[in-house]
Design a protein around this nucleic acid. Structure first.
Lengths: 187, 187
DNA sequence: TCGGTTATATGACGATCGTCATCCTAGAAA
DNA sequence: TTTCTAGGATGACGATCGTCATATAACCGA
């Protein structure tokens, strides 16, 4: 049955948002289109009226997740707060609503052009933002520290989530919070 | 047709090694058992004489890959060399034969107990090794730097692989090489 | 109001997935 | 040598995958 134009746009948006969460939770290959559509309150049939393919949806879902992550980051006024907010245990526990780089990291490199382009733009944006938040040093020095900080954040969150022992996971988060939020922010 | 006991053990080992490469290349869900068995020169039927399930093979394959990575790391006599060897472009380009943490990072957190236990033990071993390679500072300080270094390495390699632009990828590797191989090693 | 358009539902397709039953065969044990 | 056993090949199972054809129904423009 057909729905109104705005309802259709709303449905499409809900599909993207649902897919964005489910991809982060289960990986690109870990969830099927019917599960996504069903979770969005629809059946699988109407999918191809909205998207060209699963890859197409993946690209939109990743872009959506990354944009949400960027919005979240913009709330922080210092690099230290940004790092602390990123490397908290709540973020580590909630993979589905957190950073897509940490949730899908290695999977991204295997995805199509659409997904990877979106990620690349987001990385550039995050680096630029970190450079702006850094106070001291030359532009080149600040960019280097921005790259090291971003790499440390993604790596620490990935390791903290992958590790089986909660104590080690917490230790990684706490140490990285200090190392990348303070040391790099000041020196 | 049946084969000798040693031939069977050799076949089993080849399955693990092949799976270890293919999992790193395509992800746990990106490759099927028949493709693995075929790549190992066998048919898919004999699989369950060797392994209880795909998860079981995944745990062995990850353990094998991590052990290979640890062997590789042991060749380096300083932390700086270890970091440089890890964050080189050759390693970044050869996902199938490289570090399993960077190749399967986010996927690990979604896997069963067998996979995650092996990873946790490997992380512990790598941290201990880094602590040993660090010369200055207290034991607590060295452990903190070891954690930050490992996180930076994994994050940088993950980002360098995921990013679509070769120039940005190279920049991430080069900057992280210096940041985590020199600054942390000395201060 | 009426006809064209379009979002969704239903259902099916070929392919592939993990798993298993069965048979064959040859090594290992007697 | 004979018997037992186990590794591998063959083939099939139910489920699920991405994709698409078709039908339905209601919004939208005329």
């Amino acid at each position: 049955m057909r729905v109104s134009r705005e309802k259709a746009a709303e449905n499409r948006e809900r599909i993207v948002e649902t897919a964005s969460r489910m991809f982060r939770e289960a990986g690109f290959d870990g969830v099927g289109l019917d599960a996504i559509m069903h979770a969005a309150g629809l059946t699988h049939g109407g999918f191809y009226r909205h998207f060209k393919s699963k890859d197409d949806l993946a690209a939109e879902a990743v872009a959506h997740a990354l944009e949400r992550g960027a919005e979240n980051q913009r709330r922080y006024t210092t690099l230290g707060k940004a790092v602390s907010g990123y490397l908290c245990e709540q973020h580590s526990a909630d993979r589905a609503n957190g950073c897509a780089m940490a949730a899908l990291g290695a999977d991204m490199a295997r995805q199509g052009q659409g997904v990877r382009r979106g990620l690349t733009a987001h990385v550039r944006g995050q680096l630029d933002r970190f450079v702006r938040l850094l106070k001291h040093g030359s532009a080149a020095s600040r960019r280097k520290r921005a790259i090291a900080t971003l790499a440390g954040m993604v790596g620490a969150l990935t390791l903290a989530r992958a590790v089986d022992d909660p104590a080690l996971s917490k230790e990684i988060l706490a140490v990285a919070r200090k190392a990348f939020g303070q040391a790099h922010g000041n020196c």
